[in-house]
Design a protein around this nucleic acid. Structure first.
Lengths: 246, 246
DNA sequence: CAGCTCATGTGAACGACCTTTACATGAGCC
DNA sequence: GGCTCATGTAAAGGTCGTTCACATGAGCTG
């Protein structure tokens, strides 16, 4: 990471050369440590080695920095969800499950982004670009829901894809913010957040009429152990998506 | 509301007489207005008509005030959930749905409490009393899940009640924080948060094997239009818990 | 290369906040 | 009446966010 023409050390003169980026990175680190609320503009400046006033050349104020981070977060979020969805391969339900996992993974692995995106108090409509990025991310979930909705077994009414998408989003966000992050993760649970969400989504999908067999936490994303798509089983197989019923 | 011996005006001398309570009220108002992040200790003091140092006689610091509010919030939350659950009357599913509605209603009607409880960054385990209050509130949901789990139709495996409770909580919290409050409420939705959550829970319950018929938003909580409990219908009735399928 | 210009960084200053400390007040009790 | 201690105040130190006048020097123009 060279942030100056001369690559190596922090030999910087009057001008930083890459302050905007440095501030974003510093802020990211600080938010990860202390949360968006605890993050301070002055600290970011200090960390970048500039005076407290310098950041104002690149961001109107502290909120704009925050919303920049949120926007970047949504962009990376979209990328990860998109990769997880992988256009529905190898089969729609498996890919859908993978999106749920990716959601939690992002919340866990990128706490600073997630915090800025959903917990910092930055209004989504603060910025047109931010809102657009947010919508693009949601559209991945929505597209997945669309495909899934199209697969409803014959004889079953087709749920509105938008509603499904909102449902899935709320489940993922609920699990992430209640059980998968920071202080909240300290709550004692009978199962991991990932398992919790997976079971939740599977039960939900079954409620929509999808033939779901028990298969929690089949790790790896390669070959599905069961034939994809049209494995129309009975409505309620013995043993749910949760572990083993006692 | 007399906050002094002499009931009437704000004729207060050197001592306030009820400062702790006055500060809590003031803080509640301020948080409702500007969020827990924007709320300031000094403002609360001003609003109570005392110097900025006075609050320190009643709260170790700003965070302690915040966590006091969160604790109170959990207590009221518990009361409302408990009232909504009404020990499962008139039937378990109806009462369960009512709990979901009560969750959203609380989030909407008591934004300051909800904010302090879930969005202020106050760690749940900051305080033993806070944690206890939080657990008592969750136990309402848990108890309801317990009763519901016991009702799983014959031939269907019984889901762990704890898991159900966590699922329901995550749905309610997800919908509340994404769609039902503050800035988030500005997202354009095809249906109200209440309807969204109701449909979500119903689909979920159906996924668990409960015979759920379509019946969104039957308002009032008195006589159920269908015979309660053991109306074991077919697994997937035509027309889901959402509106009319096109 | 001289000179200009403008983006970028600095230092100082203001007001607000959080918190601590030494001191003031007066309510309740002997 | 006088003591005591919970409760309030004023003042001060440290941090922030933000603004403003001013400094620097990178890059263009000729």
């Amino acid at each position: 990471m060279s942030w100056r023409k001369e690559h190596g050390r922090a030999e910087r003169g009057y001008h930083h050369g890459n302050l905007k980026e440095a501030l974003l990175q510093a802020a990211l680190g600080l938010i990860a440590e202390k949360g968006a609320a605890g993050f301070t503009f002055a600290d970011a400046a200090r960390m970048a080695g500039v005076s407290a006033a310098a950041p104002y050349r690149h961001f109107r104020d502290r909120d704009e920095l925050l919303s920049s981070i949120a926007q970047r977060g949504f962009e990376q979020f979209e990328a990860r969800l998109s990769a997880a969805w992988d256009d529905g391969r190898p089969d729609t339900v498996t890919a859908f499950e993978r999106v749920g996992k990716a959601y939690l993974a992002f919340a866990r692995e990128e706490p600073a982004f997630y915090n800025a995106m959903f917990e910092s108090g930055v209004p989504v409509d603060a910025n047109a670009a931010l809102q657009a990025a947010s919508e693009r991310a949601f559209n991945i979930i929505r597209a997945a829901a669309e495909r899934l909705a199209a697969l409803t077994p014959p004889g079953t009414p087709r749920p509105p894809a938008m509603m499904m998408a909102l449902h899935i989003w709320s489940m993922a966000h609920g699990v992430a913010s209640l059980f998968s992050r920071g202080d909240a993760a300290r709550r004692k649970l009978p199962m991991s957040p990932d398992e919790l969400l997976e079971a939740e989504v599977l039960i939900y999908l079954r409620g929509l009429g999808f033939p779901i067999d028990r298969r929690p936490a089949t790790k790896g994303a390669e070959p599905p152990p069961v034939p994809p798509e049209a494995s129309s089983g009975s409505g309620v197989p013995p043993g749910g998506p949760w572990g083993k019923p006692k």
